[in-house]
């Protein structure tokens, strides 16, 4: 960059977008000023951006402010409908506005916006008395990732009947990519049923604490898992053989029922393939 005096720089900054030709390297100031005011109403209106009388107009610039905040809050409401319903519309919009200001999206795909919302809720002092809300947000985010995740065809629930029983212990299970395991201290399945009007399969009082979300075809399904079944699934997802996983889980859970656990996971259709290690 050639020599630009400080007073010239100041003029450039004051003029907003009015950048002289020789300063091609950066007309950033105008965009900086415009951007700064979008999420923060306390920032003065950008210079040189005016209404019909030639003066800055709160109302006109306010259209952009409103579009930005309202559309991003709408996107959050679309991504977290159960959190929205649990706290109520007005509270949600205020909460989402706080979130948007603190963690604005960094890319344009809004179904991928809000990954930090559960953390934000968990650290939001006014919601300290509602600790389950964080877990609901975790579950909704996982649901969204599974909904938009890659398609894959699951194996048929009777797949094991085609494997030599002597080699079953060496079988390895590859999950479909569109799946998540969510752990919670709270009865998420009940909250889900009430706020998303969708059933959760296989729920027992204990099983409320781990939910398997997966999408074996077009519909996302939720299955409550007992702790031992969840531990078993986790090990299989991690690449352990059936024998290794069963042994590890049996040592921690003395009532672990291998065939029931396998039946549960196979009927959830969370596996894309079962292979016997050579």
């Amino acid at each position: 960059m050639s020599q630009v005096s400080d007073s010239t720089k100041e003029k450039i900054a004051l003029k907003g977008f009015g950048v002289p030709l020789q300063d091609l390297q950066s007309n950033m100031q105008g965009f900086d000023m415009f951007s700064d005011g979008l999420m923060n109403p306390a920032v003065p209106l950008p210079d040189g951006v005016v209404g019909r009388d030639g003066h800055p107009s709160e109302k006109r610039f306010g259209v952009y402010r409103n579009n930005v905040m309202a559309s991003l809050i709408d996107a959050m409401a679309a991504n977290f409908p159960a959190v929205h319903d649990l706290v109520g519309r007005d509270y949600f919009r205020a909460l989402a506005a706080e979130f948007v200001r603190k963690h604005p999206p960094e890319q344009p795909v809004l179904s991928e916006f809000g990954g930090k919302f559960s953390e934000f809720i968990g650290a939001f002092p006014p919601l300290a008395d509602y600790p389950y809300l964080k877990d609901v947000a975790v579950l909704e985010w996982a649901w969204l990732r599974v909904y938009h995740g890659p398609n894959a065809t699951p194996v048929a629930p009777d797949v094991l009947s085609k494997i030599d029983p002597a080699k079953l212990g060496d079988a390895m299970f590859t999950p479909i990519p569109a799946h998540r395991l969510i752990y919670s201290r709270f009865p998420l399945s009940e909250i889900w049923k009430q706020n998303r009007s969708e059933d959760v399969e296989g729920v027992t009082p204990e099983a409320d604490q781990v939910i398997l979300i997966c999408r074996p075809d077009m519909d996302v399904t939720l299955t409550g898992l007992a702790q031992d079944v969840a531990a078993f699934a986790d090990l299989l997802f991690f690449g352990k053989t059936l024998g290794e996983a069963a042994e590890a889980v049996s040592s921690s859970y003395k009532f672990f029922d291998l065939s029931q656990a396998l039946g549960c996971l196979l009927s959830a259709r969370v596996f894309a393939s079962v292979d016997v290690k050579a």
Binding site: F17, V19, L38, Y64, V68, S71, P105, E106
Partner: peptide
């Protein structure tokens, strides 16, 4: 702008630079 996505179609001045 910078790292922020505003989800709105924001206007620009029409100059040689832009």
């Amino acid at each position: 702008h910078d790292t922020e996505y505003f989800n709105d179609l924001l206007p620009l001045p029409y100059t040689e630079v832009t």
